[in-house]
Amino acid sequence: MQKDQLFTRRRVLLAGAAAAGSAGTAGIILADSGEGTVKAAAPAPAPGPQARQALKPSAFRLQPLTGYGPPRTKPRKLKVRKEPLMQISDSRRQMMLTFDDGPNPDYTPHILDTLAKYRVRAMFFTCGECVVDNKELLARMADEGHVVGNHTWTHPLLTTLDRGEIRSEMERTSDVIEDAYGERPQWFRAPYGAWNKAAFQLGAKMGMEPMAWTVDTTDWETPGTGTIIDRVESGAAPGVVVLSHDAGGDRSQTVRAIKEWLPYLLDSGYRLTVPRRRT
């Protein structure tokens, strides 16, 4: 794919993939079709047996809308947080799906296919070294309204790096994401969930909010498709942010599992949302 063609595709960003500024209220983002408060809180408790019973099939599916606009050239400086955001508003049964470590040509397209089938958007925290050879996958994420975040260049343990090394990992990744996706990322996730003061400070300076998760599928352990499905379904609750992976190893179990747990969540009445872009 020629670079100009890639640039044209990534301009087709969906309006629902855009986040709201914090205008005086820290931790507030606008989710699709409504506001969602991101909280730095302990993981939400798993619902009881009755809560896990599937409800009537939900008619709600995210409807993509297209929009055009120039890429951001100067990031907004944000408040420096002391801990990452871990969940969204627990109102209206909203949840958020996130995928780390990609993109990977063997697994990411299948996950995108499943998300497209159910008209669901998600967040992808990508590694710069993976983006370089798979820019067309980020262009597709832009076309389909997914939000792309920064997961560093080489997925290092940030707590072992000095400030300059952390800055390089983050800046290089934001640069390549902007080139492939069409705008710089506004969200950052530390590899292994290992945050430190420098990461929070640098992320804020680069206009990125730190996001963690509340439910870990532990698919990185390849525990079996059934186990991954059970962890998502048993952990489902309003406000939950689900962590999965689309790279970093054999993710075939993840690809199979999402085909089962995604329709379950939707039929149980959950709204799967993404943050909107800050303007």
Rank of each mutant, 00 (worst) to 15 (best):
V148Y: 03
G102P: 15
R10F: 11
P185R: 06
L62E: 06
W261Y: 15
L30N: 10
A190G: 07
R278H: 11
Y107D: 09
P109D: 09
R271T: 06
E171I: 15
R251W: 03
S58P: 00
E178R: 14
A204V: 09
M208G: 05
Q63E: 12
A237H: 04
M211H: 05
A142N: 10
P43R: 02
E233V: 14
M96Y: 00
N196E: 11
T98K: 00
A122Q: 05
V147C: 10
E169R: 02
Y270S: 03
D230I: 00
G36F: 01
Q253V: 07
K259P: 01
G145K: 02
E260W: 05
R276K: 09
E260I: 14
G207R: 08
G21H: 08
Y264R: 15
V215S: 05
L272E: 04
C130Q: 07
P57W: 08
A194V: 10
E178S: 13
P156Y: 09
P71K: 11
S244R: 01
L158R: 01
P223I: 03
D4T: 13
V38N: 00
R72P: 06
R278K: 13
V255I: 12
A40N: 14
A59H: 05
E233A: 12
G224C: 03
A46T: 03
F99I: 14
A23C: 09
L272K: 03
P105Y: 08
R93A: 08
L202W: 03
H155M: 11
T217L: 14
G16W: 03
W187R: 01
I177L: 12
G248W: 14
Q87R: 09
E178H: 03
G34F: 00
W187A: 12
Y68S: 10
A199H: 07
P223T: 06
F99S: 08
R121E: 03
M1I: 09
G235L: 04
F99C: 09
P49L: 15
T25Q: 13
D32V: 07
I111N: 06
N196Y: 07
R52V: 11
E165F: 01
P105M: 10
T66P: 12
A199F: 14
N150F: 07
A247W: 06
V274Q: 07
V38L: 15
E209Y: 05
F99A: 02
L97H: 02
V232Y: 00
S91F: 01
G128K: 07
L55H: 05
L115D: 05
I166F: 09
L137K: 00
Q87C: 10
T126A: 10
R121Y: 02
T98Q: 02
K3S: 14
G128A: 13
T160I: 08
L112S: 04
E136R: 10
H110C: 09
A142H: 04
E178T: 12
L265I: 12
T173S: 11
V255G: 01
R61A: 13
G21A: 13
W261C: 12
T218Y: 08
P210W: 08
M96I: 11
L13K: 13
F124H: 06
S58R: 01
G239S: 04
K39R: 14
M95K: 02
P156M: 10
F124D: 08
E171L: 15
T159I: 12
T37Q: 06
P57Q: 04
A54G: 01
P185C: 09
W187Y: 15
S268I: 00
K197S: 15
L265N: 04
P47G: 15
E169T: 06
F7A: 15
R81Q: 09
